[in-house]
Amino acid sequence: MHRSQRSVRRAAQLLVLIVGLSLAASACGSGGSDGSPSGSAGGSSGEIFISGSSTVEPISVRVQELFNDINPDVLIAVDGPGTGDGFVLFCSGETDVSNASRAIRDSEAEECAANGVDYVELQVGIDGLGVMTNASNDLVECVSFADLYALTGPEATGYRSWADANGVSVELGGAGELPDAPLDIFGPGEESGTFDTFVELVVEHPAEERGQAGTTRPDYNPSGDDNVILQGITGSDSSLGWVGFAFASGAQGVKLLDVDSGGSGCVAATPETIASGEYPLSRPLFVYVNSDKAASNPGLEAYVDFYMDAGLDQAVGEVGYVELTDAAKAEVRAAWTERT
């Protein structure tokens, strides 16, 4: 027999040996032994699982990075499927912390209570909603809440031009001076806290008064990916859209519109007007902490302690959101230290 052929044969026999072993191993493995040693079994191993809002995700990741620099043994995983999706996981006890770009809903709180999940609500920062159009669109500079409701509310279904919305806008006390230009709307999808905040601030109240459903018109282009929204706005000359301010302020090819909450005049979105509450379209960013888990997991407690310290002072600003005022920070810190 040829020598190379013999070496091939030997290699092949070795291969089959491995096959047999791994077959046996997989057969035994399914018998119940876990296979690999794992450190996740114990409760105090210092593991933290965070999910929820993709808007708040960068803050929690930044806090994780800073925290792990001084405390590398606490193992943290941060995910960002969306505020609503996050609360489902949180209220079933799967996650330790839930990021949220809106306050928890009654239905979600009930779900938590039903599963015996107690939590602490902590505001960590502020984000404004940026209302935008294409950078080349000089027909619009400022929109009022009345305009926004008329353009995006349930009654706007089917509107293809900005001017279509003038009638409803005037009925709500708006100026009704929207231009006759094609209307392409881009915004976040419904799993998103940004969507909820917009509905809450702009749509819900007038919709209720007018006997309409408290949600946006369905015929706009929703997206969970802020980039897709920006792409949509830059791709259409007289588009309208909204995303979080942190995202909008850094974007190219779009123009941020001033917003008038009704009577108080047009306010431009800047970090200052958002922190002071002057700019009407802003929202709080929260983390929700499972209190029982914080009590039993020293790593989690230390992480949230750190969040309340460098998180509020450093991380929020570093990833582009607006820090709380000092008074508000003190209040949040008190809420954490005085939890029962």
Partner: peptide, 25 residues
């Protein structure tokens, strides 16, 4: 060019969701 949800469109120049990409979204 689309994620999560989308209005029906017939133009290939628009963004939209196919069956698998709608699932992944």
């Amino acid at each position: 060019g689309a994620a999560d949800a989308v209005i029906r469109t017939y133009s290939p120049y628009d963004g939209s969701l196919t069956m698998p990409s709608a699932m992944a979204s």
